[in-house]
Nucleic acid binder design. Structure first.
Lengths: 151, 151
DNA sequence: TGATATAGTAAAGTATGTTTACCAAAATAT
DNA sequence: ATATTTTGGTAAACATACTTTACTATATCA
């Protein structure tokens, strides 16, 4: 049997789970930093749960929450925060008096454009570093793993 | 210029940052579930910051905290929690009366063995899914990205 | 020996959620 | 049509995993 010392080192230094998380963290730190540089300095990482699940034609809070895999209460708080910061509007749903429709403001749309530009920039950086074929394979592998483990 | 609708979809569905984070989450959910199945049901994800940075011969709290990139206060809390649960001991440092040395208990070592087994199991699952060469490339790519972005 | 740095703790605050409990409106069932 | 149940949303309390501020005791340096 392998020595515990060796196992400890391999857990620490040679662990795919840790690599995923560190890469994710590196990505989001970089992306958020570029977004702040472009003037959207009050956007936080947690806001992406709303941004990423909001349709351009507008979406109900409950629907966004379900897509993001979180409670409607938590999503309601994100919505209030982003509304106060001017990125979205909460409009009363004309078809359901209980509900609100969340829509991007002009500022929110600008932030979305910027976020897309940043995504492209970071992907370019990755391709310069690894080669575009390797980035494509990385993406394919991650997708396959996620699909397999979240079903 | 690409339509905002299209940009929104690509940000949502075709975003490496989100893939990293989802893969990391899938890994840790799987690993923690297997660890709980093996009887270590009171171990939490946050504990890994201590486990992963504790040398077998024992390590000072401040050193573990620095390795983990967090404050010594936060690490002190993890240490107290894991001590209460029986995974580590806090021993007075004979060379420094201010300091404590953290060491694994027998139970802690058993958990470490289990964690290693689980790492091997999950890697095997990944290789069955993607092929061992692709897993090796994945690992290599992630390492390269992390190294480049955290320096 | 006196000033400063370091190991650790304590308590309060912050970020990002969940749980429990509730209301009003909508959908369904009889 | 009305009673029942479900759904959209909010509010408040709690949980987790930290950081910040403030402190004590010991160690180190000048």
């Amino acid at each position: 049997m392998k020595k515990l010392q060796q196992k400890s080192i391999e857990l620490r230094d040679n662990n795919l789970g840790r690599l995923f998380q560190r890469a994710g963290r590196a990505y989001s730190v970089r992306a958020l930093s570029l977004l702040h540089e472009r003037g959207f300095s009050d956007v936080k990482l947690s806001h992406s749960a709303l941004f990423a699940n909001l349709d351009l034609e507008g979406t109900q809070i409950t629907v966004i929450a379900e897509r993001a895999g979180m409670t409607k209460q938590a999503m309601g708080q994100l919505a209030n925060d982003l509304e106060a910061k001017g990125y979205i509007n909460k409009i009363k749903d004309p078809n359901d008096k209980r509900a609100y429709i969340i829509r991007f403001t002009k500022l929110g749309e600008k932030a979305l454009h910027a976020a897309y530009d940043i995504k492209v920039i970071i992907e370019k950086e990755f391709e310069d570093l690894l080669g575009s074929k390797n980035v494509a394979n990385l993406q394919k592998g991650l997708r396959k793993l996620i699909e397999s483990y979240t079903n």
